[in-house]
């Protein structure tokens, strides 16, 4: 991995990112509209390298690992590309076209999230700073 020293680091950052996003009114609204249980699968970089976000039934939850129930959508990619993606430095359409991102399940929720990526990236910078990982911030 280019940006992470082990498989725990990215999950720590991404879970914190979603915890922070879940207190932002605009993003909360956007996430609730997704209305899916999503698994972000980075297991190509380690067996425990994954986390989930549950946006169903008007509630928002996030946790490391795999969800207890089968996800509505699974997004598989490398932890490095996830870092680029949350930093808004990866064109998601291109990444999907080139099979860097693989999506299983209904993808309509993705489109609801796509317009919010810029705001997510701003929160991600703050999260990385809070974790003392300024060196991971992508210019």
């Amino acid at each position: 991995m280019e940006y992470w020293k082990d498989e725990n680091e990215p999950i720590k950052a991404f879970v914190k990112l979603f915890e922070a996003a879940m207190v932002d009114a605009e993003l909360t609204g956007g996430l609730k509209k997704v209305n899916q249980l999503i698994l972000f699968d980075y297991t190509e970089d380690g067996p425990n390298c994954s986390f989930w976000v549950d946006c169903r039934k008007g509630e928002l939850k996030v946790g490391p690992g795999k969800p207890a129930e089968p996800p509505d959508m699974t997004m598989s990619l490398s932890a490095d590309d996830a870092h680029r993606s949350w930093s808004n430095k990866l064109n998601p359409v291109m990444a999907i076209t080139r099979k860097k991102i693989r999506v299983k399940g209904s993808a309509t929720g993705l489109l609801k999230l796509a317009p919010k990526l810029k705001k997510v990236a701003a929160i991600y910078v703050t999260v990385l700073k809070d974790l003392g990982w300024e060196d991971k911030i992508l210019a």
């Binding site: 993808a107 309509t108 796509a114």
Partner: peptide, 13 residues
């Protein structure tokens, strides 16, 4: 998948 679900205007937003 996206267009089947929501048509060609799926990504209008």
């Amino acid at each position: 998948d996206v267009m089947r679900e929501n048509g060609t205007a799926a990504n209008l937003e």
